[in-house]
Amino acid sequence: MFGFGFALVPLYDVLCDQLGINGKTQNSASQYIDNEIDKSRLITVEFISQVQNNMPWEFIPQVNRLQVHPGELVRTHFKAKNLSNLNIVGQAIPSVSPGRGAAYFNKTECFCFNQQTLAAKSSADLPLIFYVDPALPDNISTLTLSYTLYNITDKGYVDVLEQGAAK
């Protein structure tokens, strides 16, 4: 049962993936399948950014919201700026609300897949390319994607990707 305690961790991740319990999106790139674009539906995708309190970065979405058709491949980006005079490594953690929508939000390219390093006083445009799965349930009309940026300079974390794979 002690092992079971730890087994709950991957088990939870699997359940979250399948059921969208906590709004975590997948942390690796998905393949864009040439979906039929569902022109009859418009989904509002909202972008929210959040910087951890003790991180001297500016981090804002290029646009607050986009109207997209399910299946359509969309490109946007977030603007990041390191305000301090130190090099800082950041990691963006995505979260989708409603949680059930997370499973239908597919990113083919995302800055959140990797750690982002910004040199002192420098800035960058961080790209995000995604599409919304046409199988998105009918009762969801708005997806909110939030990125929380964490300062992991001193943490020595291995890349989230690798860690996710290790788990």
Partner: peptide
């Protein structure tokens, strides 16, 4: 920050 979840 490291890919975990406090709710877990």
């Amino acid at each position: 920050a490291g890919g975990g979840d406090p709710v877990m």
